[in-house]
Design a protein around this nucleic acid. Structure first.
Lengths: 149, 149
DNA sequence: ACAGAAATGTAGCCGATGCTATATTTAAAA
DNA sequence: TTTTAAATATAGCATCGGCTACATTTCTGT
């Protein structure tokens, strides 16, 4: 099920209820962490050739056991692979998620700045906002940014 | 601690680290549910004179036990009050949160529509986005909407 | 007034996401 | 090489936020 299927809810066609919106938001909340991890692992891999648990934990501002547990979940979901005491790497699925997330992140930051948000605040807020931006909204952002050169 | 204190992180002044951003996002994630509940309770109280657990649960798309447990947390945090088998009401603190959240929600929806997001998608995405919009960004949204009449 | 229906409450389960404390393994230094 | 430091793993605890199943209370209709 894609983001936009979710975004449409389960209604026959027209109406969208409050419950649909909240259910959608809850669904996204549960994938937000995976998005953060895959994006970060991609960054670290590019920078250092691999993503070490310690680096992941430090960048996210959590302890290593927390990062380790999250990586176990990533592996279980087929988004990452790793051998004991070694670096973490993304699977193709994980890399695809990372690419998508990164593109979304950049677009959100660009749009915020375009409407006058200071760059620092834009970066800060985008970290949370990006997860909730649907394909439809993303397209609108693109169109808006196009239309103003 | 306010949203913007959080948004500044614990840095001395200038630099904002990745960890600050993620820690900020996590902090907001943990208050998002309270925001949803207070806003909804305010709505229901206005509509029906009180907020019943059943109505809260239905609008959020969760079961009553889940809503009940959340209300217990709200009460523990001093945001709501209720007597057994009776409606739920907001405290002054809860009502203040509801007002703030509602204002933020409206502004986010207006901005999304202003940049070309279809109203349906704007409503849907705002449900998640609104929680992550800082005061700074909110001010920028206001200025942007002012500046285009 | 009372029976049945509806609403609310409680108990207990689960998974996610954080933590601390304690192994264990790998890497670095003497 | 052997010791020490750093990184990683594991165990166990807590809270949150979902659920189902069941108990209790309130409301409604006859």
């Amino acid at each position: 099920m894609s983001r936009d299927d979710l975004a449409q809810g389960t209604e026959t066609a027209t109406e969208t209820t409050d419950a649909d919106r909240f259910t959608n938001a809850r669904a996204i909340r549960s994938t937000a962490l995976f998005e953060d991890y895959t994006e970060l692992i991609a960054d670290l891999t590019e920078e250092f050739g691999e993503a070490r648990i310690t680096d992941i934990a430090r960048r996210l501002g959590v302890t290593h056991p927390t990062a380790n547990k999250a990586v176990l979940r990533l592996k279980r979901e087929g988004l990452a692979i790793s051998r004991p005491y070694r670096g973490v790497f993304l699977t193709e699925a994980g890399a695809a998620m990372a690419r998508e997330v990164k593109a979304r992140h950049r677009l959100v930051v660009r749009l915020l700045i375009a409407v006058g948000v200071p760059p620092d605040a834009a970066e800060m807020d985008a970290e949370g906002i990006e997860h909730y931006v649907s394909e439809t909204t993303l397209k609108a952002f693109e169109a808006y940014l196009e239309g103003r050169g």
